[in-house]
Design a protein around this nucleic acid. Structure first.
Lengths: 122, 122
DNA sequence: CGTTACCGTCTACACGTGTAGTCAATAGGT
DNA sequence: ACCTATTGACTACACGTGTAGACGGTAACG
């Protein structure tokens, strides 16, 4: 089930803090977006419909919690993106950024660390 | 100007071979998609409207050529994706793939080569 | 117990997108 | 010069998405 752009903002808020109320999500997401409360509710309802979010009644309101794990979401989005853009391989993407000097020193350090780790594993 | 998913397939065909005719693009893109010829024409027209593709008359038909460079497209899509998914940094993405053993030996070799290259540059 | 405030649901609407049919212009062949 | 085949333009339509108003049920408070 596809998560749209606006919906993914709601998911981010939920991943950061759950279970929680629509009001809380509204408070944390809407300011940066200028969304009305209804918009947040609509998006939540759609996510529940898509089975990406689960609800649990708490008094007169719902508590929302993510059903879709962020890991799984990142995984499928990444795969799709890398397939579309870089023929399914990771190195060309890194190469692309490296060629444009968009790699920060921290990036470079961490990449080295990762590769060393992989070598250790072998 | 945003390029949609279907449109990006047309762009790929154009990047691979240009300038060329709608018929040629149809021949190369439609089979894998089951698109009708009109669909390809519509997408081309939209891309021309978005100024991502340029036309030049050749007899009774057009020759199409990309106006938007693939480099620029990849750049902006990548940036947006990395911002959305990994807080704007490349290393977490690689780390994500590395953790799932989705890095091919070629990926790893190329990453090493890239890092060595960067070191040389310093 | 009745009223009120809150909160989710229903409804709505414009716009982009995926997909394609019909039409009109015109280049080319005879 | 005329007919025809080709090719882009116009039109269309359903569906997802971004965005939000209106409404109705029900929990809570008095």
């Amino acid at each position: 089930m596809r998560i749209s752009g606006a919906e993914s903002l709601i998911m981010e808020a939920l991943w950061a803090n759950h279970p929680t109320t629509a009001e809380d999500i509204f408070a944390r997401v809407a300011p940066g977006r200028g969304w009305s409360e209804t918009t947040v509710k609509t998006l939540l309802a759609r996510l529940v419909g898509k089975k990406a979010v689960d609800t649990e009644r708490e008094g007169r309101r719902y508590l929302y919690r993510p059903l879709l794990a962020r890991e799984a979401y990142v995984e499928s989005e990444s795969r799709e993106f890398i397939d579309r853009m870089f023929g399914g391989r990771v190195a060309p993407l890194v190469s692309h950024f490296s060629a444009r000097e968009k790699l920060s020193p921290e990036d470079i350090a961490e990449l080295k660390r990762l590769l060393a780790e992989i070598d250790d594993g072998q």
